[in-house]
């Protein structure tokens, strides 16, 4: 079915992935293929299993069934840090920052992570090369003026921007973004969309987004999750025209507001 035999393996290949929490099937028998450079959005209503699927791919949870392959390598049993070392970086739905550290130090830690060889006992201030990269990253995510601000003093939106910056700092080959725009103002949204559109084409992107505008603009391919299962997969146009999606997702969203 795939071309894993002839050298050019897929960026991500998920087969029959399942995870139960007690009696609840949070994710149930999901298949997903993501090619190099793809932009895939995962959408679905609350409780559809999007975040669980993400955490299974990133290694935060262990699956109860199925396999995950990253660039042709079976990583189902690898811990998160080994997945990160293979080029899989992520953001968290709820910001998990180093709140006591400055923006610059947060970004620096993402740049200095293994497998890069950093002398652990050489003062950070003397690491000119990475300090320059820190400034670049800060600018890219719109935090250029705040590199010396502790992460705890950033606004909610700025913390989300820093989340993205740290994921980019890890030199991702596969970037997983878990609702990066949650709680964003319209201008912050516009900036995020702009940044994601200009992302290096070599980076494969898997995006969970509650906001349909962002999900359908960024994603070339959309995966719709519902009750732990993959409901459908298609182009943004397919999704816009699907009555099923409107019923379970867009309809519900109208009731919310």
């Amino acid at each position: 079915m795939t071309d894993s035999g002839n050298g050019q393996a897929q960026a991500l290949r998920v087969q029959g992935l399942s995870r139960r929490f007690g009696g609840i099937r949070a994710v149930s028998d999901v298949d997903l293929d993501v090619e190099h450079g793809d932009r895939v959005s995962v959408i679905g209503p609350n409780g559809a299993g999007k975040s669980t699927l993400f955490n299974l791919i990133a290694g935060l949870y262990k699956p109860t069934g199925g396999t995950v392959e990253l660039f042709g390598e079976d990583i189902t049993r690898l811990p998160s840090r080994k997945r990160a070392q293979r080029g899989l970086t992520r953001t968290f739905q709820t910001s998990k920052l180093f709140l006591d550290l400055t923006v610059a130090d947060n970004l620096y830690l993402s740049l200095a992570a293994p497998p890069r060889s950093v002398n652990p006992l050489r003062s950070v201030l003397r690491d000119a090369e990475r300090s320059a990269r820190v400034r670049e990253l800060a600018e890219q995510v719109g935090l250029a003026g705040q590199t010396e601000t502790p992460a705890s003093e950033l606004s909610h939106g700025e913390q989300r921007q820093l989340e993205v910056g740290m994921a980019l700092g890890g030199d991702p080959k596969l970037l997983l973004l878990d609702e990066p725009a949650a709680g964003f103002s319209p201008s912050e949204r516009a900036h995020l969309v702009d940044m994601l559109t200009n992302l290096a084409p070599s980076i494969t992107l898997l995006l969970i987004e509650h906001d349909m505008d962002i999900a359908l603009v960024i994603g070339d391919r959309i995966v719709v999750m519902h009750e732990g299962k993959k409901l459908m997969e298609g182009t943004p146009d397919d999704i816009r025209q699907s009555t099923e999606v409107h019923e379970i997702y867009l309809g519900k969203r109208h009731e919310d507001t």
Binding site: A58, L60, P79, S80, R81, K82, A84, Q85, T89, R90, F92, K96, L97, F98, L99, D100, L101, L109, S110, A113, P114, P115, M166, G170
Partner: peptide
């Protein structure tokens, strides 16, 4: 501050 994030970064 966040061991989970450190693991996600590869530490």
């Amino acid at each position: 501050d966040s061991p989970e994030r450190m693991r996600a970064l590869g530490y």
